[in-house]
Structures are given as structure tokens and as C-alpha cells.
């Protein structure tokens, strides 16, 4: 496996762990980290978050990853799954969304 891909996978895995931890510790999702499927819907049927949680989640992610989320459209499109939150963090960190 090429080193860039390996580095991307390791970085993404770390971010996934941190996002899962935010969901468990700050949003009180009652699951073990590895029981939170990365593509599970955040709201309604999935992890059961609601519109109040959405605001809280943004604040917690801004704090955890030290960025500001002022773009409402980006926020909306990012608040769908755990993986889409990780994509958001990657984008805010200025890294490439995709790995070579």
C-alpha cells in the first residue's frame, strides 16, 4: 500500500474515533464506539439525534477540532452520517477530501 494512502487511512481512523467520542460523551449516544456505524444516519432512524442535538453537535465539533462552521449549506450536507462529519473535519483541516 502506498504511504500516502496509509497515512490517510490512519488519519481518518483517528478522526473517526474522535467524532465517535464526541457523539458518546457530548451527545450521549448510548453505544460502544465500534457499534456506531460510520454510515449510520445521525438523525431520526439512525443514532436518534434531533434538531436540538444538531446545534450541540456543531458546537462540540467546533470545539473539538478548532474550526468555525459558518456555511449553512455545508453544515446541512455534513450533518447526515458519522462519515460525513469526518469529511467535514477533513475539509476544515484543509486536507484533501480524498487520498491518492
Amino acid at each position: 500500500m502506498n504511504p500516502a494512502l496509509m497515512a490517510y487511512l490512519e488519519h481518518r481512523t483517528r478522526l473517526l474515533s474522535r467524532v465517535r467520542r464526541v457523539l458518546i460523551e457530548d451527545l450521549h449516544v448510548q453505544r460502544e464506539p465500534d457499534a456506531i456505524d460510520p454510515d449510520a444516519p445521525l438523525f431520526g432512524t439512525g443514532l436518534g439525534l434531533d434538531s436540538v442535538d444538531a446545534v450541540e453537535l456543531i458546537v462540540c465539533l467546533e470545539t473539538e477540532f478548532a474550526f468555525r462552521l459558518d456555511d449553512a449549506a455545508l453544515a446541512r450536507s455534513s450533518m447526515r452520517t458519522v462519515n460525513s462529519l469526518v469529511d467535514l473535519v477533513l475539509r476544515k483541516q484543509g486536507g484533501a477530501y480524498v487520498a491518492a
Partner: peptide, 27 residues
């Protein structure tokens, strides 16, 4: 499992370029 992650470029499926992504893919 170690590669079941969005954002991986450089895949090939049926001879075509492919990549993993985060679903859902429709706005």
C-alpha cells in the same frame, strides 16, 4: 474492514476508475 472507508482514490472496478465515498450521494 481496514479499507472500508470513504475517500480512497485509485480503485478499479470492471476496468473502470473508482473511489470510495460517504453516502448518501444525493442532496
Amino acid at each position: 474492514l481496514s479499507l472500508a472507508m470513504p475517500g480512497i482514490l485509485g480503485l478499479t472496478v470492471d476496468g473502470h476508475a473508482a473511489r470510495t465515498t460517504s453516502p448518501p450521494v444525493i442532496n
